[in-house]
Nucleic acid binder design. Structure first.
Length: 198
DNA sequence: ATATTGATTCAT
DNA sequence: TGAATCAATATA
C-alpha cells in the first residue's frame, strides 16, 4: 500500500490534538501504515487520560520511560512490558498532557507476507495483529520507534482511506489493569474477527 | 492454568 | 539496594 494513493490521506496534527476519550473511537477503521508496505486497519483501542487516570503511565508525571507521552501529539509512545513485549500508543491532546491511545488490534490489509516474516509464530492472518504486543511485532515497532513522528515522519503514519469509524463501536473496560479497571475506555469494532478479546 | 522475562518504579 | 509491578503471549 502507498500512503500517497488517491483517496488516502495522512491524519493531520489537528486530528490528534483532542482528548483521547474523543479520539480513541475516531481511530477505529483508520490505518496504521509502515513505509515498507505493511498496513493494518485499527479495530481495537484504549484511551489513557494522563493525570486523571491512575492506570496511565503518565499518571505520576514524566519519567525517562514515558517521555514521549508528554511530547507533541501525533507521535508514537512505545513501551516495554512483561519483560518481553513492546506496545504502541498514539500520543494525543496537547503537548505535556500525557494523553495517549493504545492500539490493541489491527486487521491486516497490506504487506501480510512481511508481517508473517516479522512474526513467525502467527499461523494465520488473524494471529498477526490481534493484541497490542502482537501488532507491534508484526508491524516492526519496538524501542527504536518510540517517539516516531506520525504526522511528518517517513517511517510510520496513520491514514484515512475513507472508511468512517463504526456508528456503534462496542465500549467496554480496559484489559489487564489493576487500577481504574472500571473505566469504560476501550472501544472495538463490533463485528471484527481481528480484535484481541471479546 | 502456568511459565516466561526484564525494565521501571517504589519502598526501604 | 531490593522487591513488586507490569497497557502480555505462548503453551499446556
Amino acid at each position: 500500500m502507498k500512503a500517497s494513493a488517491k483517496g488516502i490521506r495522512r491524519l493531520s496534527l489537528t486530528f490528534y490534538r483532542r482528548d483521547p476519550l474523543v479520539l480513541a473511537p475516531e481511530l477505529l477503521n483508520k490505518l496504521l501504515w509502515c513505509h515498507d508496505g505493511r498496513a493494518g486497519r485499527i479495530v481495537e483501542v484504549e484511551a489513557y487520560h494522563g493525570a486523571d487516570d491512575p492506570a496511565a503511565h503518565s499518571y505520576r508525571g514524566k519519567t525517562l520511560r514515558n517521555a514521549a507521552m508528554f511530547g507533541p501529539p501525533g507521535h508514537l509512545y512505545v513501551y516495554f512490558t512483561y519483560g518481553m513485549h513492546w506496545c504502541a500508543n498514539v500520543v494525543c491532546g496537547e503537548t505535556r498532557e500525557g494523553f495517549a491511545v493504545l492500539i490493541r488490534a489491527l486487521q491486516p490489509v497490506a504487506g501480510v507476507e512481511l508481517m508473517h516474516a516479522a512474526r513467525p509464530r502467527a499461523k494465520t492472518d488473524r494471529q498477526l495483529c490481534n493484541g497490542p504486543a502482537r501488532l507491534a511485532q508484526a508491524m516492526g515497532i519496538a524501542k527504536q520507534q518510540d517517539g516516531v513522528d506520525l504526522v511528518n515522519g517517513e517511517a510510520y503514519a496513520l491514514l484515512d482511506d475513507g472508511m468512517p469509524p463504526p456508528d456503534h463501536p462496542v465500549q467496554t473496560t480496559r484489559i489487564g489493569l489493576s487500577k481504574a479497571a472500571d473505566y469504560p475506555w476501550r472501544w472495538y469494532v463490533a463485528d471484527s474477527a481481528y480484535i484481541s478479546k471479546k
